[in-house]
Design a protein around this nucleic acid. Structure first.
Length: 173
DNA sequence: CCCTGATTCGC
DNA sequence: GCGAATCAGG
């Protein structure tokens, strides 16, 4: 059954829409097999489209941000995600997530913009994150600094190298 | 991938 | 007029 757009349904639609509800939410509330596309289509036909550009940040009201008092800085580097190979490393698919680690130097300072030719290109952090950077220390072995070169250019593992690898890698995770 | 609204177009 | 499919963006 498709009630179509009866007056009260349209009324509810207007109300909810102007209330700041998203199309999908409205569709859900109206029920009756109405999809968000239907809602949006109707909204446009009704001429009440705009209202700002809600999108994601809209969990409820869109126009005004309650300006939540943030007491929690974006710290917590988050769980180290695995890093896809960014630089040519003889040993690919290393489940290594190079994290800042306690380093003497300023590791992870170089960004894609500032990364120079002779700077270590060992990726630091999540490549999809804005926090992403590179080691940046002086590159000696290939494109990596001494330290990271050791990890990148891992000598072929022996039979039971598995444990050994995990061992040597642990400190980089 | 999740979500958002906007547009198109056959019905 | 309707809305699924598609597009464009976060």
């Amino acid at each position: 059954m498709t009630p179509g757009w009866t007056e009260d349904r349209v009324g509810a639609l207007k109300k909810l829409w102007l209330e700041g509800q998203s199309a999908s939410q409205i569709a859900k509330q109206l029920g009756g097999g109405v999809t968000r596309n239907a809602v949006i289509g109707k909204v446009h036909r009704l001429g009440l489209s705009g209202r700002a550009t809600p999108s994601q940040p809209a969990r409820t009201a869109t126009t005004f941000r309650p300006a939540k008092t943030r007491t929690t800085p974006p710290v917590q580097p988050s769980a180290p995600r695995r890093i896809e190979a960014v630089a040519p490393a003889p040993r690919p698919n290393l489940p290594v997530a190079p994290t800042p680690e306690r380093a003497p130097d300023m590791v992870g300072t170089a960004t894609v913009m500032t990364l120079g030719a002779h700077m270590c290109k060992w990726p630091i952090g999540d490549p999809s994150s804005s926090e992403f950077s590179f080691c940046g220390r002086r590159a000696s072995e290939g494109v990596y600094c001494v330290e990271h070169a050791r990890v990148a250019y891992q000598p072929a593992l022996k039979k039971n190298g598995s444990t050994e690898l995990a061992r040597s890698l642990r400190r980089y995770i």
